[in-house]
Computed example of a mutant assay.
Amino acid sequence: MLIGIVRTIILYLIIVLVLRVMGKRQIGQLQPFELVIILMISELAVIPSQDSGIPLIAGLFPVIMLLLLGLAISELALKSEKARGIICGTPTILINKGQIMEDQLRKLRYNLSDLLEQLRAKNMFNIADVDYAILETNGQLSVIPKSDKRPATPHDLKLQIAGDGMPLALIMDGEIQKKNLEKSGVDIIWLEKEIKKANISNIKQVFFASIDSQQKLYIQKKNAK
């Protein structure tokens, strides 16, 4: 029993490490070959965890081979445009200048209901407002609205807007994030003063606090128990 638990924990940690090495993309962003490799790895990892008669190294060997295969294919797709087209496929235009491409829908076995559902997910409820819709190789739909249906930007209005920069979390669940505090350009004394201005006596009472590029502090107090 104990041996099985230890083997399962070891296999779990190794599989997590393997997936980390393969990258940080979500399931919906995986290429078909990446998804197949992950499914095969998960199936192969179950075998040595269930059968203690299989040496752990022997059970991990096919997992490592699949990892190396995935890395090799990824490297090949990165270096060669032709190989990338064969391995990952190419994006397909489903709507071209407002016109639905029926032949492409049939070729991909992609029905109108699927197309309308994906458009709604992109906040495009009227197909007449769509200029281009492109089905990416990972199955996601990219949508370009018609020019008169796109939201106005500061550039369109000829406005000069200062960049917001990246907000930094200074306090999380009562703990000061020291690295972010150093990057923010403020010190602990300033932070404590601002906390007191918000009628909070102790940093431990702060659930979350962040600072933006304009030195504006956002503070949320912990809920009283």
Rank of each mutant, 00 (worst) to 15 (best):
residue 100 I to R: 00
residue 111 N to T: 08
residue 127 I to T: 09
residue 93 I to Q: 07
residue 118 Q to N: 13
residue 126 N to C: 10
residue 101 M to I: 15
residue 97 K to W: 02
residue 127 I to P: 09
residue 107 K to R: 11
residue 107 K to H: 07
residue 105 L to T: 02
residue 106 R to F: 11
residue 129 D to H: 13
residue 130 V to N: 01
residue 109 R to M: 00
residue 103 D to N: 14
residue 129 D to N: 12
residue 107 K to E: 02
residue 107 K to M: 05
residue 113 S to T: 05
residue 107 K to V: 03
residue 97 K to D: 14
residue 99 Q to R: 13
residue 105 L to W: 10
residue 99 Q to I: 13
residue 112 L to C: 01
residue 98 G to A: 08
residue 101 M to Q: 15
residue 102 E to D: 04
residue 115 L to T: 04
residue 113 S to G: 07
residue 125 F to E: 10
residue 127 I to G: 01
residue 118 Q to F: 04
residue 119 L to P: 01
residue 122 K to T: 02
residue 125 F to T: 03
residue 119 L to Y: 01
residue 94 L to G: 10
residue 130 V to Q: 03
residue 94 L to F: 14
residue 121 A to L: 11
residue 129 D to M: 07
residue 96 N to Q: 09
residue 102 E to Y: 06
residue 95 I to Q: 06
residue 112 L to P: 00
residue 129 D to V: 02
residue 124 M to Y: 04
residue 111 N to D: 15
residue 104 Q to S: 05
residue 113 S to H: 08
residue 103 D to S: 15
residue 127 I to N: 10
residue 105 L to A: 04
residue 120 R to H: 09
residue 112 L to R: 13
residue 112 L to H: 10
residue 93 I to G: 06
residue 123 N to K: 14
residue 121 A to N: 12
residue 98 G to W: 04
residue 118 Q to S: 06
residue 121 A to G: 04
residue 115 L to V: 10
residue 117 E to P: 00
residue 113 S to C: 00
residue 130 V to M: 01
residue 102 E to N: 02
residue 109 R to C: 01
residue 114 D to A: 03
residue 118 Q to Y: 10
residue 101 M to G: 01
